[in-house]
Design a protein around this nucleic acid. Structure first.
Lengths: 100, 100
DNA sequence: GTTATATATGAAAATATTGTCATATATTTG
DNA sequence: CAAATATATGACAATATTTTCATATATAAC
């Protein structure tokens, strides 16, 4: 073992959250909700040009991990960015000189 | 389209880099190399209890994306953390209240 | 050159994620 | 209650990632 505390559980959690975010559509959702406070599902679908069912899957995925919150108001369900910290991840990558 | 510049290409790149990092073993590699400057492959394998061939795949993956650098010295190949910015990603997640 | 050691490679199997589609549920309106 | 609209769900197909294994390559020592 190495000199440091590289706990398996901590790394698993970090990877789990990173995976949740590591998808172009989900990143777009996060940025959108960072700008817009609260949005309905169809509104998000239209803004990101993504089919409703797929969008639901993505939204629920992010909600399950505590990254988004949601509330129903009549027919609509509104989502918002609950964990604003994740926006930093995106900013952070923009500072990287990683290659594609 | 939304009010903002949510460029597809930028999001694809961000997702691509996040995916590279979003794996417990690769996260462990990054932390290890953040602490240790330069390490040989077997050294990393032993520290992280991971089989050689699998480790090579991970290391080459990270190198390809510009996150690690490597150099051969005799029989050994040494890897180092080239893109230190990525460490911030891990720190960033630790500040999150995301659930597992 | 042969042997030993370290690392890389490629194919294939195992597993996980993503996308699609049909349909279910929830709510509102008439 | 029936119809319309918004969202969620679940199964399955498509695709991508991860792991394993056998083997290749590189270098060093003899």
């Amino acid at each position: 073992m190495a000199t440091t505390e590289i706990s398996q559980e901590r790394l698993n959690k970090a990877a789990y959250i990173l995976k949740a975010v590591a998808h172009p559509v989900r990143l777009a959702i996060l940025e959108l909700l960072n700008l817009n406070e609260k949005m309905g599902v169809l509104e998000i679908c239209n803004a990101l040009n993504c089919e409703q069912s797929l969008m639901s899957h993505h939204l629920i995925n992010l909600k399950l991990k505590g990254i988004l919150g949601s509330t129903r108001d009549g027919l609509n369900v509104y989502y918002w960015l609950k964990e604003k910290e994740v926006i930093k991840l995106i900013k952070c990558i923009e500072d990287c000189n990683c290659t594609m």
